[in-house]
Design a protein around this nucleic acid. Structure first.
Lengths: 223, 223
DNA sequence: CGCATCTTTGAGCACTTTCAAAGGCTGTGG
DNA sequence: CCACAGCCTTTGAAAGTGCTCAAAGATGCG
């Protein structure tokens, strides 16, 4: 059950081999799971909760490069050491795989390797979408595209995609979109004023007019 | 010789198999090689010249997600259709591989698959660096980090890394860094005024004080 | 119930963008 | 060989936008 995420499309023997090297991990909200620069000893799959990946500058500025939802992987792209910090947005559970053993398993089970490769390629397409968002969209457009992406990913995970629950803070959203928290808040207000969304609580977004939201975002992101 | 880029670390039989499906392609400066949305029929390796990858918005805004130098791959991350447009910055030559045959080859030669996977992971790390640059750096910091990255990649390719040749226009740099061409130009002027670089010609950058440039950029990008 | 934290809103400012024009280089044609 | 047209880059001035600084709600926890 819990290994569904890693093991989808694998055979029984493969699942068995994976389970034999797998250990569980759990992190509390805002706890750091891996730190930028730390040696990369494990890769992870998120099974529940949410993680944020970030890069920090010496002076404290921070860029969140993505949020992980169940089924996503952590540490796939790195070699040698982690290039990003991973923290829990909310309490989360993961499966951990020692890099060494995981590599051996990939040699034995090509389908596993293919799956990891496919996830890496998806992550790359998403990172490129994010480059467009960061470089060329206005604050309101950024927020609109963020909400749509989040809604799509929630739906993928069988979570409600319309009264949308945003577990992360305005600070996280700001650091993801390259804005300040004030600008994020004002952008929420603008979408609310235009009647595109409702905001019964700061963390709950009701998409009132999805078509309008899509028009504002002007971009279709990789799910 | 020409297949060195693709074939590094491969055996003779592998090289032979690759050459049998490979075709050559060349593009003139500013010519489009592949268009966003077009079916992905081939993947490419750049053997000479330089390409720019970009995503466009309906209203004409453009984000350049990266520049390709010899040895880089094109189309690795996509499935189904290309998600970015690839244009030549200067006249370029490439090796083209039909996706179908390439997949067959990857099954027969695991080392080839590993190499492509490794390049994809590097591309992902670079895209994440770019997210930080786009989201959190000031214009001058952006330009400084761009020049350092370019210098490092030139050195990697055996090209001069100090009187640095920038084949792309200010417009390209602006679309890569999420700025306007005027701001790019003003940022060049600032670096020049501070004595960090010299600009004998608009396309030729002499790094006068690399340490200072690194201090301004404040970030170490993945080469 | 009160403190701490997070979000929202307001006002002023700094900065990048926009709009405009000048300078410089290249290539073509007289 | 020179002149001129076109394009790219640089520079200047004005305007708009997001950021900074500040304070007022709102929410949750002790």
């Amino acid at each position: 059950m819990r290994t569904r995420a890693v093991c989808a499309a694998l055979g029984d023997d493969e699942v068995g081999a994976i389970e034999s090297i797998m250990t569980s991990a759990s992190v509390e909200a805002n706890q750091i799971l891996v730190d930028e620069g730390e040696p990369r000893r494990r890769v992870y799959t998120l099974t529940s909760g949410m993680l944020r990946l970030s890069i920090a500058l010496p002076d404290g500025r921070r860029q969140i490069t993505g949020f992980l939802v169940p089924g996503d992987y952590l540490g796939l792209a790195d070699e040698g050491e982690y290039s990003q910090t991973a923290e829990a947005v909310v309490a989360s559970k993961l499966c951990a795989f020692p890099v060494r053993e995981m590599e051996g398993l990939q040699d034995r089970f090509p389908r596993l390797k293919d799956r990891l490769h496919r996830m890496t390629r998806l992550a790359l397409r998403r990172a490129r979408d994010s480059q467009m968002v960061l470089g060329r969209l206005t604050p309101v457009e950024k927020l609109a595209s963020f909400l749509l992406m989040f809604s799509a990913r929630a739906a993928e995970n069988g979570l409600p995609d319309n009264p949308l629950l945003l577990p992360m803070s305005r600070t996280d959203i700001a650091d993801y979109l390259g804005l300040t928290i004030e600008t994020v808040s004002r952008s929420f207000t603008k979408l609310k004023t235009r009647g595109v969304i409702r905001l019964p609580e700061p963390q709950i977004v009701e998409i009132a007019d999805r078509t309008a939201l899509e028009g504002i975002s002007g971009i279709v992101l990789h799910a």
